[in-house]
Simulated scan of single mutants.
Amino acid sequence: MKLKYIYAVICLFGTILPFLQFIPWVIENGLDIPLFVQELFSTRIGAFFGLDVIVSAVALFVFIYTESKRIQMPYFWVPMLATLSVGVSLGLPWFLYMRLVHLEKRA
């Protein structure tokens, strides 16, 4: 299986798996951002994962921006938007997919 298809499958799982937890929470609580933050940081382990994802997202944005400029890849903002709307679990594999497709076209 080609690497770009593996990235595409990871994008699918990276969207579905987090939303399987998030959508029922939203149905139950609505888009209550203060409650979301409170529950995310209500335990040390939750805070650990929350902060880990936030730092990872910042690092991913830096990587996406600098690598996209280096290889002159357009639409670098799309995986950034995916990261903000779903998470690193979608943004990272989407960027890797886009990068691979861009490099294949250039070759």
Rank of each mutant, 00 (worst) to 15 (best):
M1H: 06
K2G: 06
L3V: 05
K4N: 05
Y5P: 00
Y5R: 03
I6M: 08
Y7A: 09
Y7D: 12
A8W: 00
A8T: 02
V9A: 08
I10C: 04
I10M: 09
C11I: 10
L12F: 10
T15V: 04
I16D: 06
I16S: 09
L17T: 11
P18D: 02
F19C: 09
L20S: 14
Q21M: 15
Q21R: 14
P24V: 13
W25I: 06
I27V: 13
I27F: 02
I27G: 15
E28G: 04
N29C: 11
N29V: 12
L31Q: 03
D32K: 07
P34Y: 03
P34L: 01
L35G: 04
L35Y: 01
L35D: 02
F36G: 00
V37H: 08
Q38K: 04
L40Y: 06
L40G: 14
T43F: 10
R44V: 15
R44G: 11
I45E: 15
G46S: 11
G46T: 13
G46K: 06
F49L: 11
F49I: 08
L51N: 11
L51S: 13
L51V: 13
L51G: 13
D52M: 09
V53P: 02
I54V: 12
I54C: 08
V55H: 07
V55M: 14
S56R: 02
A57H: 11
V58W: 01
V58E: 01
L60R: 00
F61T: 03
F61D: 03
F63P: 01
I64W: 01
T66A: 06
T66L: 10
E67S: 15
E67H: 10
E67R: 05
R70P: 11
I71Y: 08
I71R: 09
Q72T: 07
Q72D: 15
Q72L: 04
M73I: 01
M73D: 04
P74M: 03
P74C: 11
Y75P: 10
M80W: 10
L81V: 12
A82G: 03
A82V: 00
T83W: 00
T83R: 05
L84E: 08
S85Q: 07
V88C: 14
V88N: 14
S89A: 07
S89K: 03
L90I: 07
L90N: 03
G91S: 05
G91D: 02
L92M: 14
P93K: 03
W94N: 02
W94D: 00
W94G: 02
L96A: 04
Y97D: 03
Y97C: 05
M98L: 01
L100S: 15
V101Q: 10
V101C: 09
V101L: 06
H102A: 11
L103W: 13
E104N: 15
E104C: 07
K105N: 14
K105G: 12
K105F: 06
A107I: 03
A107G: 12
A107L: 13
A107F: 07
